[in-house]
Each structure stands twice: as structure tokens, then as C-alpha cells.
Design a protein around this nucleic acid. Structure first.
Lengths: 290, 290
DNA sequence: ACTGATCTGTGATAAATATTTCACAATTGT
DNA sequence: ACAATTGTGAAATATTTATCACAGATCAGT
């Protein structure tokens, strides 16, 4: 046990580079629900990680143990030690960092934001927003501000794959009035607006509303003035220990929305995705992953 | 084994009265450092509790298990569940929605991603990354791919405020070689690369590495090939119930990083922020329509 | 203090499982 | 096409578990 004070989890993590693919797959599986999985029989672990028995035997030795039983014994020792420590509270997310470390403070705040945001969300409103966004008969405009335009673009990138007739508008640009000319009754605007609320965005929203468009607003807990003309308003907690606001909660909601919308018209979407993947493959834009 | 609802520890406690002296002695030893001792071999447990082997076998059956292995399996299951529990107390995040609703399923997955990502992150590496990014003497290049470029831009927007000499590079664009010409030894590249990994990004990273630049890599749990030339590699869990991967965990890490970097050179940053705010006000960039 | 019933440990053994290791084929990446 | 990796199936080995008979210990009640 020359490996000093580091946990086996650390050790495995450090060795990750020296492991081959199957071994790494196994290692990640061990870490997945650590340490329980490593305490069962070797064969069970192999099946769980979807690798062969010899692979497990090989990796354990590569990690420096004489055999699987010795590895298990080490795990048990660690578990025994860990339980004894009264700091078993899970307020440390990054276990290797002190609880006052920014990693833990920030994560704690974000989780709290998520809890509060989700706790007061109206599932009906959420579903309604998804329905609107999924409806390919409506042109979809996605509007972001100075900071939020990255979120808007994230949504745009995905919607572009899922459905036709999507436009990304930046409210800080002076070209958005041109886009608005094309908007007709029943079209949908997804608008991002958090403090400090932007006048451009409000103006855009009002004009869109006048033209009979539906508005889905993604805002913060104090709600942008846009909410007065919004059909659906989803408000997020965004306060974190930082000089900035957090977009993480909104990102979560956004991705949930993307997942939901995609499910809603999967049949129509599937072909689009496959076509796109083919095109990417053909142009070799990406490297095939395995 | 109908006692599904309660923990094995509880169960043992309850049975304590029905046990004989040696069995009780054994049971207490099991509870002593629970559950580690029960996960080793039967003989070890017997010796540990200072009872005989048959006593262990007898007690296990008295507890209602078919044999010692089954008892161990139950312990492992409980351990597995327990590790997850600190967060799982929020069975339903969106209280108004059924637990099967996508809002709850998705959030559950993201929280799990966060837990796993933070759990295996190396705070030293994280701090090192922050130090590199905070160092105004090094030019900072931020590189994103097709999807990740929104994250890259999010980082860029903030870094632009916090420090000078920041450049946003899109690896999918064919203009990035021009940026690379300006990179000199000691400069820092923050590179985003998740599956499916992009060849352009890898090429860019390799060239940057050759020029002596430091590379901070934000990638997924399988790690982009860029990690071979990276100074710091931060890997994130990204799997969610969706056709796409989740960027939420990475966003969290990113914002934590921004917060940390900003704190590191706050004195230098403060003036920049104030100056910028003034400029926004003066140019009325956001008030055109008031 | 005695008795009888119950509990417990010993040592041995058979049965069951788990581990380790082969050689070789299939697969993968370069 | 070559080298490295990985899986397969099997067999040998090692370990663990379950159980037995029996002897000693314990204890309650007389």
C-alpha cells in the first residue's frame, strides 16, 4: 500500500490514461456506483461493465493489486475508513476539495437554484411551451440578448435539426426588424431576457405580440417586462456566489425542452437528423466516434 | 425477505432481541463498522466478531437470507442506493408534475451527472486551470466546435470583461489557422470538445501544443483525443434521456471557473467592468427605443 | 449443586463459487 | 496487413460456504 493517502477512486482516475479502451470502460463502470460494484463477485462486475472476465483480472493487476480479492479488501478498508469520518454529509460535491472551495459553494447554489426553479414551475405551462415550439406549422423565432444569445443559439442549433422554419434573432443587432416583417399570426417567439433587461428585446416582443405571435419567455425570478405580452413565462433562479448570474438552470430547462420537443414530433424529426448526420459524415466534418 | 422498505441495519436492530448471545455479539460487530465488515468473507467476519463460523452461518439464515452471499448482495444493493440517496431525497423536482414527467426525469439525470462529475474532479487541476486562464500575461484563446461553440462563446463573453487579450476561435471555421499564427509560447487555449470529437479541433490543439501553448480541455467522460496534449483536462458527464448530450454540467463548471477567475484578479477586473458599463450606458446600446 | 436443555466452538469435509490463467479467435486501430 | 486489444471457452486452482457430529460451556429451575 505505498499509494499513500489517496483513495482507490483517485488512483483509478489517475491510471485512466494507462488503461486500454475496455479497461477504461470497466474502470468508469467501477466509478459509476462506487464502491458497491467492486465489492461483488468478479464475474458480476465484468457483466455489469460489459467486458470479459479476463479484462477485469488484467486491469486489477494493472492497478497494482495481486488479485481481485486484494482489490476488494482495499475497497472495504476505504469504505470502513470513510464511514467513520463524521463528514459523511454530502454538502461537499467535489469530495477532494474542502467544503469552502468554490467548486462546492457554487454547485451547492446551483442545485438550490434548480430545486427552487423546478419546484415552482408549472408543468402545464412547460408542456404548452413545448407544444408551441414543436409545431412545425408555426415559424419559430429565437431571440437572445447580449449574454443570453448564447443560450438562444444553443436552442437554435438543436431546433434547426429538429424542425424547419427556425430563425435566430439577436435583439442587440439592428437587423431584427427585418425578421419581424416575416412574422405572421400564430408564429412563435422564444425570447430570452434576464436582468439587466434589454429595451430592444422588450420592443421586439411587443411588436411580435401586436402581430399576433405567441411568445415563450425564458427569464429570471424577477421576470422581464416582456412577461406582460408572453403566452408562457418560465422563470429561473439565477443567483450564485459570483459577480455574474448563472445560466445553468436555464440551460437545464432548455435541454429538457429540447428533449421534449424532439419526442413530440419524433417521426418527422428522425429523417432530418439522419440526413444531417449523413451530410456531416460525408463532408468528414467530424471524426467517427467509437 | 419482505422487509424491503427498511435497511438491513434496521432489520438487524429489530432482530437483536431474538438472537442468542454469540449471535448478538456478531450482530453488534456487523453494525460496528457497517456495512464494510459484512462485505468481506464469512470467515473474516467470524474472526472479527470473535465467534465461530457456524454462528455466522446460522445468524444469517435467522435473519431471513438463504445464505451469506445473499446477505452480502443485499448489503451491496443498500450501499449502492445509499450513495445515491443524498440527492435522491428529491424524488420529484417539479412537484406539480408526475415523477415520470420529462422535467423530473431530465433533472434527475442532470443532477446525477453533476454529482458524478464533481465527485471525480481534481480540485488541483481545476485551480490550475483557473490560474492559467486568469493570467493576463498569457493571451487567451477559446475554442469551440459545432455545438460547443455556444459554451465557448459564453466563456468568451465573460472573459472579455474580466481580462484583456482574449480571442474566440471557432474550430469549424477555416480562419483559425490565422489566429494560431499569433499564439506564442505560454499562451492558453481553452478547448471544448465532446463527442463526436472534431478533427479540426484536434488538429488545432496539436498545433497549439507544438507552439508551446498550455491547453485546458473541457470534454466528456470519454475524453476527447485532445487530452493527450492538454495541460489540464476536465471531464464531464453528459448523458441524459434525450437524443442529445447535455451541456448543463459543463455550463456549471464553466460558470464556477468564471467566478473563480474573476476573484483571482478582482482588482484588475473591477476597473474593466466599470468602464464597460459606462460605455454601454453612454452609447445607449440598449436604449435605442426608450 | 445437580439436571437437562440450549447454545457455542472445534475440526473436518463436501459442495459450491470464485479466481486465475490458458490458447486462440475475433476485432479494432494504424 | 500488422500489431495490439479484447472476447471466448475451458480448465485448473483457490477460496469460500454450508453443514455435520460432537464436546464443552452456559444457564434456568429445582
Amino acid at each position: 500500500m505505498a499509494e499513500a493517502a489517496q483513495t482507490i477512486s483517485d488512483h483509478i482516475h489517475k491510471m485512466l490514461d494507462d488503461l486500454t479502451r475496455a479497461e477504461r470502460q470497466l474502470a468508469l463502470s467501477v466509478l459509476e456506483n462506487y464502491p458497491a460494484s467492486g465489492l461483488g463477485p468478479l464475474t458480476a462486475l465484468a457483466k455489469d461493465a460489459d467486458v470479459s472476465v479476463p479484462t477485469v483480472a488484467r486491469m486489477v493487476q494493472k492497478l497494482g493489486y495481486k488479485g481481485y480479492p486484494e482489490f476488494q479488501a482495499a475497497l472495504r478498508e476505504e469504505l470502513k475508513a470513510k464511514v467513520k469520518t463524521p463528514i459523511a454529509k454530502h454538502d461537499t460535491w467535489a469530495e477532494a476539495a474542502p467544503s469552502g472551495h468554490i467548486l462546492n459553494r457554487f454547485t451547492e447554489a446551483v442545485i438550490e437554484n434548480i430545486r427552487l426553479t423546478l419546484g415552482q414551475i408549472d408543468p402545464t405551462a412547460f408542456d404548452q411551451a413545448c407544444d408551441l415550439i414543436a409545431d412545425a406549422d408555426r415559424h419559430l423565432f429565437i431571440v437572445g440578448g447580449r449574454i443570453t444569445h448564447t443560450l438562444a443559439e444553443y436552442l437554435f442549433l438543436h431546433m434547426q435539426v429538429i424542425r424547419p422554419h427556425v430563425t435566430h434573432v439577436q435583439s442587440t443587432s439592428n437587423t431584427w426588424p427585418h425578421y419581424l416583417l416575416n412574422a405572421k399570426e400564430g408564429d412563435v417567439f422564444v425570447i430570452f431576457d434576464v436582468r439587466r433587461y434589454e429595451n430592444n428585446t422588450l420592443k421586439l416582443a411587443e411588436l411580435a405580440h401586436e402581430r399576433g405571435a405567441k411568445i415563450v419567455l425564458m427569464t429570471d425570478q424577477w421576470r422581464s417586462p416582456v412577461h406582460q405580452v408572453a403566452t408562457v413565462c418560465l422563470s429561473n433562479r439565477i443567483v450564485v456566489p459570483s459577480a455574474w448570474d448563472s445560466a445553468t438552470t436555464m440551460m437545464l430547462l432548455l435541454e429538457t425542452m429540447i428533449s421534449s420537443v424532439q419526442t413530440l414530433n419524433w417521426t418527422q424529426t428522425k429523417a432530418r437528423i439522419e440526413g444531417l448526420e449523413d451530410m456531416f459524415d460525408q463532408t468528414k466534418l467530424f471524426r467517427k466516434f467509437t
